[in-house]
Computed example of a mutant assay.
Amino acid sequence: MKVLVTGGAGFIGRWTVDRLLKDGHQVWVLDDLSNGRKENLDDLKKQKNFMQFITGDIKDRRILNHLFTKKFDICYHLAASINVQDSIDHPEVTFNNDVVGTFHVLEQCRKNNVKLVFMSTCMVYERAWSAEGINETNPVKPASPYAGSKLAAENMVMSYFHAYNLPVTVIRPFNTYGPYQKTGGEGGVVAIFLKNKLADKSLQIYGDGKQTRDLLYVEDCARFIIESGYSDKTNGEIINAGLGSDISINDLAKLAAGDEDRIEHITHIHPQSEIPKLLCDYSKAKNLLGWEPKYSLEEGVQKTEEWIKSTNLI
């Protein structure tokens, strides 16, 4: 197939492109590099089915008009402003990228009859109330402009399914981590903890650290993303993916550092956006796609630490 990945130079985007190439598809990548890095794609660009990398913005209609002349079969729309704290400080930027940008991509998919897989987030949910975790019917509670923008975009995506019969799928991966994730302020908690451990620094935790997260290894996430696009069963559906078990940030820090004395609790910058318990029920993904995670948290953390060591990011 001919496939477009928006945000393909990002952390999850890079792994999605990698998987699509391994499956034999022709892949185009659009990324404005506000969050992604060209270097993430260095080893993938050499492959014959990597067709083109375009530095550009999903809000630029001219670029999108030109790109969609390629007659794609699927568009995996991963491009977005993804930082919760930034969205609270600069909500307009997040709204324009995540809602307006998604609208422009949607319009191109409608005009060219291209299936769209829209990357949303578990942050739209309120919290996990039961031991079974959060399923797709759980209540939503956008506690940040990031979550609000993703929900608004989800609704636009689903409206195109109902109004135009456009094949669309909304996916809500839980907290994803692994190699190629940034290890600085915009990175994920696992990558930041591991980098600080390797650099002999303290591991800082916002608040009391009792908040829990369901952590999904990035290769499992990429497999979920692309398989959501392959199947017609997913059209018009919202689907979760996660590990199916959660861990407190305190326990995650202990796992990463192996030393409780390195942990330091600091005042939360935006406590109003904190979700106290995130635990995924991925049974819908399992039923529709036969998908389930292959990597345990311990395996994923070890692979991520090995990658950080190999890249001299410390």
Results as ranks from 00 to 15, higher is better:
181 Q>V: 01
229 G>M: 01
228 S>F: 00
104 H>N: 15
266 I>V: 13
69 T>G: 14
182 K>A: 15
61 R>S: 05
99 V>T: 00
23 D>Y: 07
73 D>T: 12
37 R>Y: 12
199 A>C: 10
17 V>C: 04
103 F>P: 07
295 Y>V: 08
96 N>I: 14
159 S>E: 03
39 E>T: 11
40 N>D: 11
212 T>P: 11
34 S>G: 09
243 L>I: 08
195 K>I: 03
52 Q>C: 08
161 F>W: 06
43 D>I: 13
260 E>I: 14
287 N>S: 09
127 R>K: 15
293 P>D: 02
311 T>I: 09
132 E>D: 13
280 C>D: 01
191 A>D: 15
44 L>A: 01
39 E>K: 13
147 A>K: 05
138 N>Q: 13
15 W>A: 06
255 L>H: 00
212 T>D: 06
126 E>L: 06
158 M>W: 00
130 S>L: 03
33 L>H: 08
247 I>V: 08
90 H>P: 13
182 K>T: 15
142 P>S: 12
125 Y>W: 11
261 D>E: 07
28 W>L: 03
111 K>M: 13
67 L>S: 03
136 E>T: 01
208 D>E: 11
186 E>N: 15
237 E>I: 04
289 L>W: 01
206 Y>R: 14
49 N>R: 05
292 E>N: 02
4 L>E: 05
260 E>M: 14
282 Y>W: 10
12 I>A: 07
306 E>A: 10
278 L>V: 04
106 L>H: 03
313 L>S: 08
138 N>H: 15
150 K>L: 00
288 L>F: 09
29 V>F: 02
114 V>Q: 10
4 L>F: 05
296 S>H: 00
279 L>D: 00
38 K>I: 14
290 G>F: 04
161 F>E: 05
51 M>Y: 08
152 A>P: 03
303 K>Q: 02
247 I>G: 13
81 S>E: 05
42 D>H: 10
307 W>C: 09
238 I>C: 03
6 T>N: 03
313 L>T: 11
63 I>W: 00
16 T>F: 00
53 F>T: 10
174 F>K: 06
249 I>C: 02
146 Y>P: 11
126 E>N: 05
164 Y>M: 12
132 E>T: 12
11 F>N: 12
304 T>E: 08
171 I>W: 01
29 V>Q: 04
187 G>Y: 00
95 F>M: 12
8 G>C: 02
